[in-house]
């Protein structure tokens, strides 16, 4: 774990920036404005043709991958602080957090590659 710590901080930082810049507008539109009928949502076919474009797929991968590891890293240390986890018990929590983020990334990559 120690050897890849700088890499994990890089993922945390990039994910923090990606989610700060992009998540609010996505949730505002897809999570509130469209479901509540404030604005017209794109229909199925046009959204599908947008998502299958290679640039959109890459965008969505960045949108999911970095923020998942941002969550993993920050959640790990929040658990340590909140529950005052001592050194011996820290490792399993770290593995669970990064493991979950890795599984989510694989699931995202598979979904983005499978869509056609």
């Amino acid at each position: 774990m120690r050897g890849i710590t700088p890499f994990l901080w890089f993922l945390f930082g990039t994910g923090g920036m990606v989610s700060a810049l992009l998540f609010p507008i996505h949730v505002l539109l897809i999570g509130l404005a469209f479901p509540l009928g404030w604005l017209d949502a794109p229909d199925y076919e046009s959204l599908r043709s947008l998502v299958i474009h290679p640039i959109t797929r890459l965008y969505l991968f960045v949108f999911i991958f970095f923020p998942l590891f941002h969550w993993a890293h920050r959640f790990r240390y929040t658990i340590y602080d909140l529950f005052q986890i001592k050194h011996g018990a820290q490792q399993p929590i770290a593995f669970l957090c990064y493991g979950a983020a890795l599984l989510g990334t694989i699931f995202a990559a598979y979904t983005l590659l499978a869509i056609a």
Binding site: S19, F23, L60, I64, P67, H70, W71, A101, G104, F107
Partner: peptide, 12 residues
Amino acid sequence: CVFVGVFAVITI
């Protein structure tokens, strides 16, 4: 960060 993680999963 919990919401960041959940919204990433909802997007998938």
